[in-house]
Amino acid sequence: MRITCPCCGERALDEFAYYGDASVKRPDIASPTAMADFVAYSFDRVNAAGPHRELWYHSAGCHLWLVVTRNVANHEILNVEPARDVARATQQLPTPGRGSA
C-alpha cells in the first residue's frame, strides 16, 4: 500500500504508523453512562470487511495524523484527510488553512 499524505504526497507504507478505528469518538466523562461509553469506545469494534475509517500517523514524515478511508477487504485507499480537519468538522470548528493549525 501507498498512502498519499495531504502534506507530503504519496509515500510508502513503512513511513506510517497505524493506530486504529477512527469511527469511535471519545465520550464525555460527565455523561451518566460515561463508564459504559468509555468501555465501548476503547474496546468494541465494528470490524466490518469493507470501507474502514482509520487513523494513521505519518511518523517518518510530517507527523500529521490522518484519517484514511480504506477498504480492508482489498486494501484500496479511498480517501485521506488530516485528522484534525475531520475532528474540527465533527466539532463544527472552523478549519484553518493548511500549516497554520
Binding site: A12, V72, A73, H75
Partner: peptide, 11 residues
C-alpha cells in the same frame, strides 16, 4: 493494520 485481504505488504 486491519485487513480481511489474505495478503501482506513487502516491507
Amino acid at each position: 493494520y486491519n485487513s480481511y485481504a489474505q495478503r501482506g505488504a513487502l516491507p
